[in-house]
Amino acid sequence: LDVPNANTIFINSANNFGLSDLHQMRGRVGRSNKKAFCYFITPPYDVMTEDARKRIQALEMFSDLGSGFNIAMKDLEIRGSGDILGGEQSGFINEIGFDTYQKILSEAITELKENEFADLYETNDKEKKHVTEVTIDSDFELLYPDDYINSITERLALYAKLNDVEGEKGLEVYKKELIDRFGELPEEAENLLTSVRIKWIATRLGLEKIVMKQGKFIGYFVSDQQSGFYQTEDFGRVLKAVQNNPKILRMKEKQTRAGLRLLLTVENVKTVDKVYDILNAIMPTAVSA
């Protein structure tokens, strides 16, 4: 189907078509110098199946030029990619989403490399990441306010993009794009970007969880007390910082449901920037990678 002069297409019963089919058909109208319109005719949302609703919403979300990759990933998430390492071609990925499935699979492979198949994989302790993800629990507002970015879809896309940013240069480029599109960043957005820098440093410091509440900072070190992290230079740097700044940094053990945990605590931290400055003083090269 290719009608050069057509600028409008109606797709009847669009809920019965696949996501890639719909994406291809809507691309049959319009040219670089001609604005085109595509109308999906569907029953009411409450009548359609859940997958059909997701397909239509995906097309609404990704309508810009060059959205083919995003459409393909969304299609994969909706239909599921199956059990990659097994004989079945339909797995629980359809329920948890493709990104989460990838994360679980990556963690399982890493665990096998470090334990059952450790002899087959030689790892350099200096380069090894003992913490792959840092969770933050905070009473600071770390977000894009509704009055700064009023589209929920746009905010979610930007959060996802921020999660993929690597290094200070990448974060600066990301920040410039935000300012170009939406104007100067409000305090909540600035705090969000600073929290990303804090996560980078925390990864080097061996902190799996960070709590920033009521003017107090608490960092939870690697839960596995037998972890090789406690023999690294990075942990030695933490110990040295605590010894040199006893009035600011304190280290203690606490009994938790998961067992005994080593904590790093800092009192009187009333801003996100203050937390960043303190951690950056311990590990100043962490965000330059």
Rank of each mutant, 00 (worst) to 15 (best):
D125R: 07
D125Q: 09
K126D: 15
K126C: 13
K128G: 02
K129T: 13
T132R: 15
E133Y: 11
T135A: 15
D139Q: 04
F140C: 07
E141V: 15
L142W: 01
L143G: 14
P145T: 03
S151K: 04
I152V: 11
T153W: 14
L158P: 11
A160M: 10
V165S: 02
E166I: 14
E168W: 12
K169W: 15
G170E: 06
G170F: 09
G170A: 08
V173E: 15
K175H: 14
K175L: 10
G183S: 11
E184C: 03
E190Q: 08
E190V: 06
N191I: 01
L193A: 12
T194K: 02
S195R: 04
S195T: 07
V196N: 08
V196A: 11
R197T: 01
I201M: 12
A202Y: 15
E208S: 09
K209G: 11
K209V: 08
I210D: 09
I210R: 00
M212G: 02
G215P: 02
G215F: 01
G215D: 00
K216M: 12
F217R: 02
I218P: 10
F221V: 00
S227L: 05
F229S: 02
F235I: 08
L239H: 04
K240E: 14
N244I: 10
P246H: 01
L249K: 03
R250I: 13
M251C: 06
M251V: 09
E253A: 12
A258H: 12
G259R: 03
G259V: 02
